[in-house]
């Protein structure tokens, strides 16, 4: 890619990533949440890979890493959901943390935690899908 694209990407990618994180952690207060924020955060990674390119072996290694993050994040979500079963009420997906006051960042009990891990899961899975399709294409041209 040209220098213009590379420089613009360099300037923008961080901001895009930060915006994704903002959407994720304000998921319980404003529209958006884990999925929307995760897609935005994944966008910054995809932007960097598209602008700078990468060789085949690095891409496969990156794919292994993102698959790992994806699986770990979803296991943590599952564990958080199951943690409600171990409290006294035995209710799945129970919001057992204190709720706090409405409108503050640290409120709504478990919801910010779910949002954060779903965000990680979505971001890494979208990067995985993108890398998998790119790797298919690279394999084909050989």
């Amino acid at each position: 890619m040209t220098t213009i694209v590379k420089k613009t990407t360099q300037l923008m990618a961080g901001l895009v990533f930060l915006y994704g994180i903002y959407i994720i952690i304000h998921g319980h207060l404003t529209p958006g949440g884990g999925f929307a924020g995760g897609v935005i955060a994944a966008g910054s990674f995809i932007l960097i890979i598209l602008a700078y390119g990468s060789d085949f072996i690095r891409l496969t290694r990156k794919e292994h890493g993102s698959t790992m993050y994806e699986n770990l994040a979803i296991l943590i979500v599952a564990f958080l959901a199951l943690s409600g079963l171990f409290t006294g009420a035995c209710v799945f997906f129970l919001n057992w943390l204190p709720r706090g006051t409405t409108g503050e960042l640290a409120s709504a009990g478990m919801l910010p935690l779910y949002n954060i891990f779903v965000g990680i899961e979505v971001a890494s899975s979208i990067v995985t899908i993108f890398l998998a399709l790119v790797i298919f294409k690279e394999e084909m041209s050989e």
Binding site: N71, L75, A78, F79, L85, F92
Partner: peptide, 17 residues
């Protein structure tokens, strides 16, 4: 009841790791 869904789902991702 929820374990019927959660055990195989969690198992699927554990196998992937």
């Amino acid at each position: 009841i929820p374990l019927f869904v959660m055990i195989p789902l969690a198992g699927a991702f554990l196998i992937m790791i």
